[in-house]
Amino acid sequence: MLKSRKSEVLAAIVLAGPFVALYAWMFIYPTIQMVHLSFQNAPLIGEGTWAGLKNYTKLLSDRTFKTAVWNTAYFVLLTVVPGTAVALAIALMVSRLNGWFQSIILAMFFVPYVLPVTVVYILWDWMVNVQFGVLQPVIALFTGKPVNVWRTIPWFMPGVAIVTIWWTNGFSILLFLAGIRNIPKEIYEAALLDGASRTQVFWRVTWPLLWPVTVLCLTIQLILQLKIFDQVYLFSMGGRTQVTMVMVQYIFEQGFQRNNGGYAATIAVALFVIVVAVSVLQLQAARLRRGT
């Protein structure tokens, strides 16, 4: 028994060792270096001087940082729950289709997910162009005139949120569709025999059984949207970037544009703490919901 136990431990070390080493090298070590750099007054590359808590004290009084936190939180509110709800609705719709028609419709929703962000930017910048954008007549129905979406502050973040939901929802749709297909048909047949309506079937059968998939989609989207950068950076080029600043964009500005590596690392630590804290809170809330 002892020899067998040693063999299992040795096999586990051999199999898990490369991953653990790579994980420590690619994640744990850079994280420790980032935290260490946040206590220094240093450029992005090169030696710095010890600054203690100076960067963190500056962070608490930095108005641009507060703006970046607010814009990031606002973007999360606009995308995570609405995007997940839209993905669930589309998955329910696609699940009712059959054969090649289902495959075509599913591909139409998934294709945007594989597009590079630059292609997404060019496509949507063309569609909402003030002079010839194909979406401007739709916008004019609500505003009475064309609107420069990317240069109008109240329109900017909702506009980027719509683009992001359109761009990233394909993966969530696939997850929901896989979850729907794993629900036994016998459960639906039993519910219908008991006289349940379609609404009751959804709330009493589909929704509870899809809850683990919903939590997964919400968690993935939450982490992704807290780290929003590409879309905001591209759509705000030439505009009032300080007003539309998000946290990763502020890290980029401080680190790569101003060569202030110590302060950029401080903002990155703050974002890391926020991502971990919000993710843990969401998972705990999901666990309590499942328990009820």
Rank of each mutant, 00 (worst) to 15 (best):
W25N: 10
I183G: 04
I223A: 11
N182D: 11
R289T: 05
R240V: 05
F109K: 07
P146Q: 08
Y250A: 01
P137L: 09
W207C: 00
S236I: 03
V201A: 09
G255W: 11
K66V: 04
A265V: 10
N182T: 02
V163W: 05
V243F: 12
D62K: 11
T143L: 03
A73S: 06
G291Y: 07
S95V: 01
P146D: 01
Y23Q: 05
L115M: 15
L37S: 12
R5A: 08
W167N: 05
A42S: 09
W70V: 01
G179Y: 01
L224S: 03
F171A: 12
N259R: 10
S95G: 06
I267G: 01
V76F: 12
L59T: 08
M127H: 07
I180N: 11
K185C: 02
T79W: 08
K145L: 02
S103T: 10
L135T: 08
T64A: 09
G17S: 04
A73P: 00
N55P: 06
F156T: 09
Q284N: 13
E186R: 13
V163G: 03
A12T: 01
D194E: 15
N98V: 01
P30M: 07
I228E: 13
P116R: 13
L2H: 14
V273G: 12
V248P: 07
F75W: 15
V147C: 00
I122T: 05
M157R: 14
M93I: 03
I105K: 12
V117D: 09
G238L: 12
K66I: 06
K6R: 05
W126N: 08
A285K: 11
V130Q: 06
V248K: 06
W126F: 04
T168A: 12
F256P: 02
N182E: 09
L97A: 08
N129F: 05
V160C: 09
L174E: 02
L218T: 00
T199I: 02
L193F: 12
C217T: 04
Q33P: 00
V278K: 08
I122S: 13
E189W: 14
L15D: 04
L224E: 07
G17M: 07
T84S: 03
V232Y: 13
W124F: 14
W70N: 04
L97N: 11
L115I: 12
V69S: 09
L77T: 03
G133N: 05
V149C: 05
S7K: 15
V215Q: 07
S172L: 08
L271S: 07
A87G: 04
L288Q: 15
P18R: 14
A89K: 06
M34R: 15
R5S: 15
V232R: 08
V280R: 13
V243C: 03
T79C: 11
D194Y: 14
G52E: 06
A286W: 06
A24N: 11
L88V: 00
T72K: 05
L53E: 12
A286E: 03
G159K: 04
A51S: 10
F27L: 14
V138R: 13
A178M: 00
S236Q: 10
T67D: 07
N148S: 05
A264Q: 13
I228P: 09
V14P: 05
R198M: 00
Q200W: 11
K58R: 14
A24E: 06
G46F: 13
N182H: 05
